[in-house]
């Protein structure tokens, strides 16, 4: 369980997190939605200790993350930010193997190798394993980063816009992969998503943020409604149900 208590964070004079208190139970996919600048990525970064909050606390399974030892936390929680620029020339396999660092400190055990191969198979990277990252397309690279995160074998996986750089086919494959990971391996996935229809179809919970606050949270059926989406995005959005899923239409 991830809990945040009264998180506040400001950059200069602008408040990006305003008293965020959340409880995310174990298991399932939670999507964080909201307009640009709503504080989604900041929240994800604070929960994963990449940023410190000005005040408030975050705990994972009742353990304060800012007091936990780095490697211990890294075996429990993995995070992938967006915009992962790499100057280093590494092969896909090398990158994914670094996901094992919290477990092995660089000396891969047979179990590590298995986890690495498993993660690469899962993200359909086996054929690319010896390619350098700078020889891959944006989508392939994104998959390699997610594979590294999976190889870390943590209970919690936090992803900031994992569908960035992915075309429709790859975006869907990525979401299905994450769903499988949640179901088969009992992972807890929390991710920032811009595409609210992907959030609607694949999430167990949706958290809606606006101006640094969590203004709504609930199941897709509860959140994907014209009234709530108007509140979140300040625009009129039609919602229709197709095959048991709710879809938002905001293109016209």
């Amino acid at each position: 369980m991830i809990e945040t208590r009264a998180l506040r964070k400001s950059y200069g004079s602008s408040l990006v997190l305003d008293e965020v208190s959340l409880t995310l139970p174990r298991g399932g996919i939670t999507s964080i939605i909201g307009a640009n600048g709503a504080g989604k990525s900041t929240l994800l970064s604070v929960i994963s200790r990449l940023l410190t909050a000005d005040s408030g606390a975050v705990s994972i399974d009742s353990q304060d993350i800012f007091r936990a030892a780095g490697p211990e936390l890294a075996r429990k929680l993995a995070v992938l930010r967006q915009d992962n620029h790499l100057n280093a020339r590494l092969t896909v396999k090398e990158l994914v193997s670094f996901g094992r660092y919290p477990h092995s400190k660089g000396r891969l055990t047979p179990a590590c190798r298995e986890a690495v191969n498993h993660a690469m198979t899962w993200l359909d990277l086996t054929a690319l394993s010896d390619r350098f990252l700078d020889q891959l397309s944006g989508g392939q690279r994104q998959r390699a980063f997610v594979a590294m995160t999976l190889a870390q074998e943590t209970d919690y996986i936090l992803l900031d816009e994992p569908l960035n750089n992915l075309d429709m086919k790859n975006a869907r494959a990525m979401m299905l992969t994450l769903r499988q990971a949640v179901q088969a391996l009992q992972k807890t996935v929390v991710m920032v998503l811009h595409d609210i229809n992907f959030a609607s179809v694949h999430s167990d919970r949706i958290i809606a943020m606006k101006a640094g606050r969590v203004i709504h949270s609930g199941t897709p059926a509860q959140i994907i409604t014209p009234a709530i989406l108007r509140d979140v995005y300040d625009m009129e959005i039609t919602v229709q149900e197709i095959d048991g899923h709710r879809f938002a239409f905001y293109y016209g």
Partner: peptide
């Protein structure tokens, strides 16, 4: 300490995520 340095070369966020100071 080569692995540590390669990891640090992945950037602060990724290194922190993997438990590196």
């Amino acid at each position: 300490a080569a692995d540590r340095f390669t990891l640090a070369g992945l950037g602060r966020d990724m290194a922190t995520s993997l438990g590196l100071a």
